[in-house]
Nucleic acid binder design. Structure first.
Lengths: 212, 212
DNA sequence: TCCAAGATAGACAGATCGTTCTATCTTGTC
DNA sequence: GACAAGATAGAACGATCTGTCTATCTTGGA
């Protein structure tokens, strides 16, 4: 697998996304270079190879940090996994916020759909990080699952808002359908091929939007 | 989790499925009771808890077989995983074949959709075994992924055939959309709740079918 | 220069992992 | 009864797992 398509905290690409959000990110507390290298490496490995398949030894070797550095910044592996997922969540939230800030309400849905279609070919080529993590963490009370659930709640409600501001007649039902299709696009892009999935996703989503 | 909903080789329930197929199954070569107990236990654990999270020790302890028995029947863990997936595949194929044999062509699609909607609440409550396995096995050349791919090819083509025999105008496009929605139903049933997902799935699928 | 924060290089511990193997027992068939 | 197939009860192996810890070095700011 080509490292150029590795997932990390580089977010999804949405058409016409404004890069001014990146300037805002510079105001965040700055973590050490080693910590960032660690988290980036772990995130890549977790997304590309799965979470339980990748051990601490592998992560620190590839990140070129020591064990002590890892445990200094993260109390345990599960917290490292949580940080990976929160990174993915933040990146997508930033992308959606940027798109909403720069695209008129009547165009935002198309932009989101295009963004999803683009994402499955450019970044999330190994499925959805949240769905994949949920496959490996069956315990609904775990922190991983809490993050997954919160992410999905946010995404659904973002779609509802977009549908509402676009004047859609049933934003809740429309969002429910689009969440289904988003999930399916990520799974299908990984397992059935990007091009065919992209076409089916767009066509089906348009059908759904046109039906209301 | 209630063991009554644990996945295994008991297939999906499809409405009006004919139980005469169960009689046919009795003609198959009979495996030993220990082997069947082992495979059933492993399948339950793999589905409920994930594949890499469940070790050989756990499986043999819960199946009440020994290590030697396990390795006598399966050359390695990966072959046990393959057998689990093939069991899931066979069960679904049997269910679809039974439905096709007993339900008229103009009703088969509704039956399949109802079957999927029923399945996510009764059996596959922890997502799709194939999607979950693919999350844990990123190597496209592995046997696990070969089985997943073959399963998905079969399912897609079954939908195409059903759409064609029901007189649908574009069976390929329709099947592509329904595959998306089937994937999404299994993911959504696990992560977002069965009732809401079921309703959205049926409604969206009906929209898709009515659009052509 | 001093000091704190954070990095490095490991060693260590107990547990688990998947696989291989030996010895013995059990069961069904001839 | 003899025998083969398949079961049992482990032991052993080398590797890996996650987390804990010590000693020392490095860097930036006061």
């Amino acid at each position: 697998m080509d490292t150029a398509v590795a997932a990390g905290n580089d977010g999804s690409d949405f058409p016409q996304a404004d890069s001014s959000a990146m300037a805002g990110a510079a105001a965040w507390p700055k973590h050490s270079e080693a910590r960032e290298r660690l988290l980036q490496t772990a995130s890549d490995l977790f997304y590309r190879e799965g979470i339980h398949s990748v051990g601490i030894d592998r992560i620190i070797a590839e990140a070129r940090v020591t064990r002590a550095t890892l445990y200094r910044h993260f109390p345990g592996k599960e917290q490292l996994v949580a940080a990976y997922l929160l990174g993915e969540d933040t990146a997508l939230r930033d992308s959606i916020a940027a798109a909403v800030a720069s695209i008129p309400p009547d165009k935002i849905l198309d932009a989101i759909l295009e963004g999803i279609a683009d994402d499955i070919g450019r970044h999330h080529t190994r499925g959805c990080p949240f769905i994949n993590a949920a496959a490996e963490f069956p315990d609904p009370t775990s922190e991983v699952r809490r993050i997954v659930d919160e992410h999905r709640r946010w995404f659904r409600s973002s779609l509802e808002q977009a549908l509402e501001s676009a004047g859609h007649s049933s934003p809740k039902a429309g969002a429910a359908s689009l969440v289904l299709l988003r999930d399916a696009a990520l799974v299908g892009g990984y397992l059935d091929g990007v091009e065919a999935t992209r076409a089916a996703f767009i066509r089906t989503a348009k059908t759904v939007l046109a039906a209301d």
